[in-house]
């Protein structure tokens, strides 16, 4: 049976966060004064032109980097280091190529020495993403969509309270994309984690998220926030969705008739 256990979702706060990277001797600013409150269990999509700094926001939330200014807090406590309650899924599946699919899913529990207790959970995670028959396959034997499913299973097996999705569907073909979008919503509903999705696909953002946050080009600032209230499953031909989509595209500087 599928595991329907839910997790205690994490609430996340970005408080006047600015960040940049050293390029040679100068600093390239990527985030400017970003404040964002994400409620426990919320699904938020971050939308913006490519390279604007949305991914940096996720790295800060994961604790892989510490902001130069401002604070990132999870449930009121500062985020300073990565941890298995906040897991990042990358655009490339970044599966460990020397481990089988099962080995990859086991990586998290194994790294924390919890593998013996969590073996059953590994099977469940594989089942949850529909890869139970591919446990012994190596990553190079998987299609792009399967690899991304495996990466999601590798994240979910740790019961993350916050799932950070950095354009996880960006490189997939459109059919695989549609399926995985549905799967993501289902997993989010079943497990109850907080989700932040970085994407530059307006439709994807509107189909999945409770709230869409629109960013400016680099350095990223929040331009607009749009709440999406229609219940799941959402239809992409819903007139309200189409109207919001056009408005957002206009904000992004794309003409109406695209």
């Amino acid at each position: 049976m599928l595991d329907h256990a839910t997790v205690q979702p994490l609430g996340l706060t970005f408080d006047r966060v600015s960040h940049g990277y050293d390029i040679g001797k100068s600093v390239l600013p990527v985030l400017e004064d970003v404040s964002l409150d994400i409620q426990p269990g919320e699904f938020v999509a971050l939308l913006g032109p490519s390279g604007c700094g949305k991914s940096t926001l996720l790295r800060l939330a994961a604790g892989l980097e510490v902001p130069r200014r401002g604070r990132v807090q999870g449930d009121g406590r500062p985020v300073t280091a990565p941890g298995p309650d906040r897991i990042l899924v990358f655009q490339d599946a970044t599966l460990f190529p020397w481990r089988t699919v099962r080995g990859n899913v086991e990586a998290g529990p194994g790294a924390r020495g919890e593998l013996a207790a969590k073996r059953a959970r590994v099977d469940e995670a594989l089942q949850l993403v529909g890869l139970e028959a591919f446990g012994d396959a190596f990553p190079h034997q998987l299609s792009g969509g399967m690899a991304q499913r495996a990466a999601i299973a590798r994240a979910l097996v740790n019961d993350p309270r916050l799932l950070l999705l950095d354009e996880p569907l960006g490189k997939l073909d459109s059919l695989t994309r549609l399926n995985l979008q549905k799967d993501l919503v289902r997993l989010w509903q079943v497990r109850g984690f907080t989700a932040i999705l970085v994407t530059h696909d307006v439709e994807e953002a509107l189909l999945l998220a409770d709230r869409v946050v629109l960013f400016s080009p680099r350095p990223a600032r929040i331009v607009q926030e749009v709440r999406v209230d229609s219940p799941h499953p959402r239809r992409r031909d819903d007139p309200a969705l189409i109207a919001t989509r056009s408005a957002l595209l206009a904000k992004l500087g794309v003409l109406e008739d695209v």
Partner: peptide, 17 residues
């Protein structure tokens, strides 16, 4: 590839692991 270390770190892996 640095991303492999990023993945390992978010999974809670020690340096040794």
């Amino acid at each position: 590839n640095r991303s492999y270390y990023d993945v390992a770190r978010t999974l809670g892996a020690s340096s040794r692991w």
